[in-house]
Design a protein around this nucleic acid. Structure first.
Lengths: 193, 193, 193, 193
DNA sequence: AATGAATGAGCCTTCATTCAT
DNA sequence: CATGAATGAAGGCTCATTCAT
């Protein structure tokens, strides 16, 4: 009960202020619990953040897996993964931003490593899908890493230039980066669902 | 005199510890000056960081501009830009990491905006080159943004998986993302210099 | 049932960590009961500690009384008391250390007074034995207080310099302090049992 | 300037409340400086305490050494050391109490070790004087350790039973413990200065 | 131009204790 | 009898910044 309230509050606060600007006071207040309660449920700030990411990621990978398991044609599958990733990024944009960009400075070293491993696992997860989809001959993890970063860049641009591009454009451009090159995005896309 | 010592020290400290973990004490000590001296030359930590980035960026854009102005064929120009960017990223990897990823959390709001604008300017700078190179019909800034992010991702992967991929592979893969799609990196590349 | 488990656990935890470093969580966990249970049996941390000391002391004074009641010659009686005290100190050294040294800092004032009274009672108990043994003309409580402190010092030294002195040496030195002076420990001792 | 104000304040606060009950806030307020100032001059609470003890001890050993160097007859020298020790204990009784009794629980491990070493050094210092005074055949450190502990006990008793014994009595009793045994304190003392 | 002592708001964390069940 | 989730006061510490010199 409290635990969930705290995680919800933490999501909001971390999203709004970023990891460092967020204080345990903020989160406790937002959650409507005493500060001590945070420490009853989580060993510390870093671990609270970690729990948030881990549990969020579990949900996200679950949803992506679902789509992928529907056994679509390869290219379509890739496109689906891209579209879903972008959708989820937009839904949790601030948290996603932290997850992709801010895993570095002042976070507890141990937790930081775990979180980076989590990110690596996510990259491998995407890499596997790419692999199944036909990128046999290359370093799929490297490709996935680049792909997710590019998504991160696109979405960041999208968010900081509101109204300039549509989400669907981003999907297509990302798809183009995989299939035809950014220079040649004119190919017909597989039907979007 | 002092100012340069400080900037050098700041580069080292920020590179090693990231923005937040770096303290003004650290920098002053590393520079061999008193802490007050930092505030004589810079209004605050954020502005010191900003100066570091700004002056570094001026140097970097200068070097890229030089290459570009040699009037190479378009595709070759793109490849040159990519190769140069990656080279510079690797040379100043920690600072580059901060510049691309960490511009968010606890930095002074005003400076943060300026820094983001600086990043935007850099993106526009790359976008212009892409534009000259033939991407007439699309949102070149968006593309440049994605391209730089992907570079950031590749380089990050490269740095955290030492020995697994070579720098040149990254150049080619990035080039492929622009020209043929990550799925089809087998095309002959223009001669590398 | 629970109460005993708690006291046992408390003895272990307090012994190992000292009063302040020991937390109620530690004790509850070690005892295998919930934290609330501690407060069911004892009003608070201080009182739990007090119970531990009080009950331990009852046992100890009992054992000493037994020996003393065997009606030995006076000097022999003193020696017996010394030997027994040292033996008990060594058996419960950490608790003894707390009892003799640490009764001060952050313990609940009321309990602290009770505990100090308990210590005074113990000193009086020893003083009485000294008195029966012949120290008619002097302040026996003062002497007992010094004697126990010296024992505390010897035992502390013994424990922190393992292998350097034997327990029996301590007994003899303490006996000398009472009978002949530390400078002249060469007198024949009464037979040890 | 500030440093001295802090040390003075710390002496007062630690003396009154003991190590654990004393907070850095207390000390800062008492010293009339901001809390941060404490941390400018000392790395932390433990080290502030350590500085206090160390510098106090230096003064004390200096004063004792002075007396001892006056080359008195052996027994008189011992008595002088005893009298001086007791005088100093009384002058700084709370600090002395902490130094002799409370070096254990929640103090920073590293500092604790240093402080214990400091105490050991003081014991050795006293031991050397005993040695020069004729205790050739025995473990002088052990004896010194016991002697100081007994002094601690006497003084503690003296302080908690005001008016019951005079300071000079304590000196004589302690002297007796060294020379004739507690049981026989009736010997004529060397002239007190 | 440079210094460095002093500041103080802000932060994370600990832990004895309470209380509804 | 026993539980364990929740509390909140208290404490140690960090660090960017200021200012008199």
């Amino acid at each position: 009960m409290s635990r969930d309230k705290i995680l919800d509050a933490a999501a909001g606060v971390f999203s709004t202020k970023g990891y460092h600007r967020s204080s345990m006071d903020d989160i406790a207040q937002m959650a409507g619990v005493a500060k001590g309660t945070l420490y009853y449920h989580f060993p510390g700030k870093a671990q609270l953040f970690q729990a948030l990411i881990t549990e969020g990621l579990r949900m996200i990978t679950g949803r992506i897996r679902e789509e992928v398991d529907r056994d679509l044609p390869l290219l379509e599958q890739i496109q689906t993964v891209i579209r879903l990733n972008i959708q989820l990024y937009m839904d949790y944009s601030e948290l996603a931003h932290i997850f992709f960009n801010e895993l570095s400075s002042g976070i507890d070293e141990e937790v930081l490593l775990a979180l980076k491993e989590e990110r690596s696992a996510y990259i491998r997860f995407i890499a596997e899908i790419l692999e199944e989809a036909g990128l046999k001959k290359m370093n799929c993890e490297l490709a996935a890493s680049g792909l997710l970063s590019m998504m991160n860049g696109f979405c960041g641009y999208h968010l900081s230039h509101p109204g300039e591009v549509e989400q669907e454009q981003i999907v297509q451009l990302l798809y183009a980066a995989v299939t035809t090159g950014l220079l040649n995005p004119r190919v017909e896309m597989p039907e979007s669902n």
